[in-house]
Amino acid sequence: MWRYILKRLLWLIPIILGVTLLVFALMSLKPGDPGRVYLGLNATQEAVDAYNESLGLNDPFFVRYFNYVKGLIKLDFGKSWVGGESVNDRIMSALPQTLKVCVYALVVAFITGLPIGILSAVKQYSLADRVLTIIAMILACIPVFWLCNMAAMLFTLKLHWLPATGLDTWKAYIMPVIGTAANTIGLTVRMSRSSMLDEMRKDYIRTARAKGAKEGSVIFKHALRNSLISVTTTLGVNFSILMGGTVFVENVYAIQGLGTCIVRSISNNDVPMLSGCVIILATFSVIVNLLVDLLYAYLDPRLRAKYVGKKKVAKARKEALNDAN
């Protein structure tokens, strides 16, 4: 198991490097004149050039990339092109808000999606199942920004129940969290339904029923435990979808998170800020995916055996071969 964990941890490094290279390469394609933006239209061309030179913009691509990565290792994302503030500070102040909303949303999606999915799998082809699956599909396809706007229109403008900006009270969390979770709830329902159905069709369920096990214990003790394994694998993917969704949710509800940062840096042409935010979000999604994979390896006995007992199995196989010879 430890070897597996170590292997996966080491694997993080090239992936994150790849992500930084991807983002950095894309951003270097973008035409931009930070000196002009920073110093204003009245500055002389020499001053602008000197400013750009000081940012190292005239160096060849790989030198700039190398310097950027060197900064990243020291957790330094550089300076914003607009206003020259440190990207780090910005990210540090914005990250907690985004993570909070994302994690809550993931939890909400899981605890609402899972029971609904199981219910609709157990009652397959019933009216409830049909209605629930279609609702889940609609939820999975709903544009996040639209849902958030509609929710704000209803609950804030019409009913005055919930505040539509910031994250100051617990009430303020309700709309952003549900808005972020909406797509994932739909996906979780669909995923848990299909994996539950897969399990319910397997032989061991028939065996359990034949032995006279009660329906409740067949569903919860046998089918659910196995279908949970495949549902956990989707957690990682879902988290990365949530991270993408926060860009819009934060924008609608004026939450000062990374999403708002990204939107602002798009309109300001602020390349270091944008790449910093994207790299941070990508890194988090990679880490969460890794954790989910490890959890999966731990939960699934088949996979666990593959890594835990590898030596023993190899030894046994060798002995068997020797015996045969």
Binding site: I15, I16, G18, V19, L22, V23, S240, I241, M243, G244, G245, V247, I262, V278, L281, A282, S285, V286, N289
Partner: peptide, 8 residues
């Protein structure tokens, strides 16, 4: 490519 959240 899969590591970067798709929207981003």
């Amino acid at each position: 490519f899969l590591a970067v959240p798709s929207t981003l």
